[in-house]
Design a protein around this nucleic acid. Sequence first.
DNA 1: TTGTAAGCGTTATCAC
DNA 2: GTGATAACGCTTACAA
Lengths: 346, 346
Amino acid sequence: MGVSLKDIAKSAGVSEATASLALNGRKGVNEKTKERVLEIAKAMGYVGSDNAKSLARRKSGLIGVMVPNISNLFYSNLVRHIERALRDMGYKMILVTTESNINYEKEMIKRFVAFRVEGAIIYPSIKENERPDYINILRQNSIPMVFIGSYYPGIEAPHVMSDLYHGVREAVDYLYITGCRHFYYIGGCKTIISNQLKEKAIRDYLTERGIEFPEDHYLELEHTRYENAYIRMDALLSSGKPVDAVIAADAFTSLAAYNVLRKHGYAVPEQVSIISFDNLLYPDICVTRLSCIEQDLDSIVNCTLQNLQSMIRDQSDGVSHLTPTKLILRDTTRQYLANSREKTQG
Amino acid sequence: MGVSLKDIAKSAGVSEATASLALNGRKGVNEKTKERVLEIAKAMGYVGSDNAKSLARRKSGLIGVMVPNISNLFYSNLVRHIERALRDMGYKMILVTTESNINYEKEMIKRFVAFRVEGAIIYPSIKENERPDYINILRQNSIPMVFIGSYYPGIEAPHVMSDLYHGVREAVDYLYITGCRHFYYIGGCKTIISNQLKEKAIRDYLTERGIEFPEDHYLELEHTRYENAYIRMDALLSSGKPVDAVIAADAFTSLAAYNVLRKHGYAVPEQVSIISFDNLLYPDICVTRLSCIEQDLDSIVNCTLQNLQSMIRDQSDGVSHLTPTKLILRDTTRQYLANSREKTQG
DNA sequence: TTGTAAGCGTTATCAC
DNA sequence: GTGATAACGCTTACAA
């Protein structure tokens, strides 16, 4: 087994208590003794067991972070931001992924409890999740949690996410005033809250303008992969229905839309505009620089962690927060010419 | 604090020992008692503390996995493979990243020890690492480790990685027999073993053919980012030196090379061939489908874990292994015409 | 079938 | 300054 405090104490000829004080840099230890202990510890490669420390201190110093996967640049960026912030706060991150699988999600929630994390950050991703009460096991063990990016309704926990409703409205508005009238959204399942917000934003805006947004204009993807998006867009364009605006869930989905549109002979953005979510792929790498709705990761992460910290420290309830998005106009949207605008506010 | 075994035992009116037996599904417990305990545990949301279990059982069930970062598709894919395999083996993964920063790497090695992981999988990424002896702290705490993807010389531990030497030789051979004579490599620091292997492969092959591979044909990047690669390639082409073959460290580097070549008016692959490492970006998304040297992740991961498991179980030393790569020819290399080949074997 | 008690590696509270 | 000792939450002989 590993080197233990007992080994160090014995080797230094002191009690475990003294060795512990010395190793933790507490005062009240003779300088000589301290040096000797430290030296021996270093020589023997002693690293205290976090298990034992957690038990004895009654706190683990761990924060659980749950995301659907890490092969997606959006999540891995998010995780990176979180880890950096957590490190600054003196916490260690336990990262788990769910692959959007409800069984894994349940398992990982339990793992958080088993690890006795002091707080949990959860990115919801389960589609068919009418009863997400398995999450309440955190509450039963008095582990504070905050949703990030979206949330499951019915769970008492704050969420921190982009103001998708207004972000999408802003995008739709821009598309509208640059002349678009036939809108489509292509992205994830409607059962997920964040997608419902996007859909509602589009529908509300268009309804105010007297334009329909029929159910089938939301191209719902089981998985938001390039291939799936490609197939759906291909079917749509083959049907001959008019299209002049596409809002897409992420860069890959947008690229699929772009490629299909080109294949069918549409000019982007002259005939059809595309607005993507997230500002991730290096602009240079893509053929065309995507216009997009950028999320403010820094602000989302900071707010999430402030929430969590106050929940941990002050037993507070935490408070939900929406951070503003930013519409970035590049090559897949038409230019706005001031005099082309009929009416600005919806 | 969380719900503890004591709470369950008290609530069920049994001793902690009995509750423990029941919860772990051991035999020798009255069926009625067992049911009662289980029911109460479920109602109270009991999840045993892994800390306490690890201490009591003298094993943590944890495997530490260290990669430079997770925002890179290559690493996140690798991690995904590892996690899946680990799950099947009944281990829990502790994932940490180093950002290729030696201080973080040291910190994370210590964290592995502090967590009392049963084994460690390490992807080396530190450039200026003459004395990586901080890794020996694992050995001092008798934690088996295996390097994956590369290794640090001087550390007694097996490594599992692609046979880069022969993989690159195969690629260079293909380029040579399709007519290339002016080779460049663009990628990471030469101080990293895996890069040294690649360089040696190119130099050895070309030397055998009587072709020079001067030092400055290895375009060494501090960080293998798109932008950096773009700048270096741009400088090279501006210098007017002849180029007709580029081997690049990954998809982004290759894309940079491709874009710069096009910008300078070179036809790919007619005038210049490009071979990338790793088969990652969806072929459809890129303008041009990259020819590449594919690594066999499955085989690397399986071998790594078999190694680790036997080191844990049998205290064996583990054995290093090189897995073959596969040359995938697509649109950035010329076609091989049988009669154009002068001599096949190097 | 159940309970008692020792032990895992620490920290923390007291005496000394 | 230092050393016993209890406690943390659990497992596991061993006894009952």
